[in-house]
Design a protein around this nucleic acid. Structure first.
Length: 269
DNA sequence: GCGACAG
DNA sequence: ATCTTGTCGC
């Protein structure tokens, strides 16, 4: 298990997000993004970490690359990993990014011809407490265009599940319909998208990196056969790996302490 | 006590 | 995230 991170570490994480945000590109930067039918787009990827029921120590980092627009699987990678950070709302990237980057590096090394032109991330991008969610974090560190797709509405920066919001959701009548998620500041942090005709519950799309909100929404819709975009849905299979429960608590505890120590010079654990 | 809480 | 079966509707 992980103990609650010291306040100092959260502050450090916040400044890390502030620092990386300076490199964020919230506009379309690729030619295919501006073309009709995204002509020139041939490979889209999805990444995710799936967790195991009673195991708070291990997870499976997955990466899948699909052809576009066919959405056929071209590449799959699953790797069991040992977690180093706990889940803290607003800091998901510090838990998942290292392993997702590793997966992208393996792809680059083994199949450079299959490196994706855009990556769908299971989580938010700009739609975040400090406008720098997992999709932004992975985007900046990888340099790849990224789109954040969350299954649940995060109530941040004035965005609420109000009557008004419920009404807007009800007004999404067909696949592709969307409405903006606007912060108190007036900035559009993302959009709620009805991803297919047959799913009434929207998904929440936001800019990760090197793509505009509108393009992210159009692209997401074009990758949806069901509610969840295929690149992410393809990862759902989960893991069929059984682990010895003996690798255990002691080792996990050691690792987490080591992690906190290395990130907090001088701190006692 | 109650509601929030990406994964 | 994950634990889990059935059930209602097209």
């Amino acid at each position: 298990m992980f103990s609650a991170p010291p306040e100092a570490l959260l502050k450090q994480w916040e400044s890390e997000q502030d620092r990386l945000r300076l490199q964020l590109i919230q506009e379309d930067s690729e030619d295919w993004q501006r073309r009709t039918h995204f002509l020139g787009l041939e490979r889209v990827a999805g990444v995710d970490l799936s967790y195991i029921k009673g195991d708070h120590v291990h997870a499976c980092a997955q990466l899948v690359v699909l052809s576009y627009p066919e959405l056929q699987v071209l590449y799959e990678d699953s790797q069991m990993v040992t977690l180093t950070a706990p889940y803290i709302a607003g800091f998901l990237a510090f838990r998942e990014t290292p392993f997702l980057l590793d997966a992208l590096k393996r792809l680059e090394k083994n199949r450079p011809d299959l490196v994706p032109q855009v990556v769908f991330v299971d989580g938010n991008g700009l739609f975040h407490y400090r406008e720098f969610g997992l999709a932004c974090h992975l985007g900046v560190l990888s340099g790849l265009p990224c789109v954040g797709v969350a299954k649940n509405l995060l109530q941040v920066q004035g965005v609420r599940k109000s009557e008004e919001h419920q009404a807007q959701v009800a007004a999404l009548t067909k696949g592709g319909d969307s409405f903006p998620l606007t912060a108190a500041s007036g900035k559009v942090l993302g959009k709620a998208l009805r991803s297919s005709d047959s799913s009434s519950k929207p998904v929440y799309v936001s800019v990760g990196h090197k793509i505009s909100v509108d393009t992210a929404v159009r692209l997401t819709h074009s990758c949806c056969r069901y509610r969840i975009p295929e690149p992410i849905r393809q990862l759902s299979g989960g893991i069929s790996v059984e682990l010895d429960s003996n690798v255990g608590v002691a080792e996990a505890d050691r690792r987490s302490r080591e992690y906190l120590r290395s990130h907090l010079p001088g701190a006692r654990t």
